[in-house]
Computed example of a mutant assay.
Amino acid sequence: MGLPSSQHLGAGSISHSNLLPASTSQGDVDMSNVELPAAAPIVIHNPKEPEYTRKKVADFLHSHTAYELIPESGKVVVLDMDLPVRQAFHALCEQGIASAPLWDGEASTITGVISASDFIAILTRLRSSVSASGNPMSEAEMDAHTIRGLREEAAVDGREAKELVYVKPDDDLAKVVGTLSSAKCSMAPILSHDPGGLEVPDVLHLATLSAVLACLMRHFRASLASLPLLAQPLSSLPLGTWSPDAGVSSLPVVDDSRCLLDMYARSDITALARNSAYNRLQWEDVTLNSGPEGTLHAGLGPGSRHTRVHVCSKEDTLRTVVERLAIPGVRRLVVIHPDTRRVEGCVSLSDVAAYLFL
């Protein structure tokens, strides 16, 4: 029996509460106005840095497995290969994700992953079928194109779909990181069995670099001083992109003074599903400011209800950078001047993974 078009396995997510110190009684003595000196951070000075920290991180990666990335409860979205592209587009948008594993009911297995890059290629291909008069593509016309059909058409044109990249629960985290990095993937499904075998594979969860970072920080939570490299400011490390670069997956949106307004990433293509903005396919007439989000001025600060852009400064420590990138869904930090908000660079998950893990 095949999986449904959009399947949700479990519900909810793991949350970790902050540990608060237990209150103590001092009798009638009022301690409320007593100022205690801040404890100085304990930093291990090792002349062999960054090799010392990298060795500790490597030992951690080789001694922990992908099984530890699977939460006690969670949600996994799987899309059917025979789902119309329009519905798949809306499913990703509604779930707030940029990619999902694909279920092939004919082969009874997970056959691949569809990502934001695939949708960009699909929209580019469908655009050629829109008449020169600029008439929008109807929902019926969109529904005639399924994920399977478009992948088969691409194969006929010599553009074979990428092989499925996946990991298994017993794979150590070093292999998980190596698999994601070598395939240049943002995520890989954790499968219970190899696809194409006698056992039908279950999608247990999705492995990501941010999940590996979060696992690392949980493990060393009580002993972060044993990773002294994390105490170094970003400005002292060979990390991040500090000049215009080709092939990037996102671009900061700035004003005339180069102050940060927003971020537009490749994964934001799924936002076109809102109000069916994709069916026009007349991109020359659509600007970032007139897109389905309605405004560029999304929340930038930590108090914003819907924070789209996550930032740091050059003086923030590597620990701060790692902790922010360990948040699910955060794939990059824009480096800004703390006073002017002028954009200075960008640090991505892949940057940190290459520096700490590889």
Rank of each mutant, 00 (worst) to 15 (best):
I14S: 14
D351Q: 10
C93V: 00
P71Q: 10
P84N: 12
L318A: 03
T307Y: 02
N18G: 15
R274T: 00
P302W: 04
L216S: 09
S313N: 08
R280D: 08
V330E: 03
A183D: 00
L79Q: 03
T295K: 02
A154P: 05
I97H: 03
H64L: 12
T24W: 12
A38P: 01
V309Y: 14
C312G: 07
S13V: 09
P50D: 10
I269K: 00
L92E: 06
A11P: 01
L180Y: 06
D245M: 06
V321G: 10
Y264L: 11
M31I: 07
G149V: 13
V330K: 03
D104S: 12
D171F: 10
R332P: 01
L251I: 13
P292G: 06
H306V: 06
L288H: 06
S249K: 06
V167F: 15
T124Y: 09
V322A: 15
L19E: 14
A58S: 15
A214C: 09
Q95G: 05
L213V: 01
K175L: 11
R280V: 01
S276D: 14
A107M: 14
N33I: 08
S133K: 06
Q7V: 01
R86D: 12
A58Q: 15
E68G: 04
A161M: 05
T109H: 13
S6Y: 13
H62L: 11
R274E: 05
F60I: 01
A39P: 01
S73D: 14
H64D: 07
H337K: 04
V130H: 13
D28K: 02
G345Q: 08
L206A: 06
A98Q: 04
H310E: 09
A354K: 11
S313Y: 08
L150G: 03
P37K: 05
A161D: 05
L239T: 02
A273G: 02
D30V: 00
T53V: 13
R86P: 03
A207I: 00
Y52F: 14
I70E: 13
V334E: 11
L191P: 02
V330Q: 07
L213W: 10
D170N: 04
T307K: 15
V286W: 12
Q7N: 09
D59M: 08
A225Y: 15
T241F: 04
A231K: 08
P302H: 10
V76P: 07
W103Q: 02
E35I: 11
P328V: 03
L216H: 05
V347C: 14
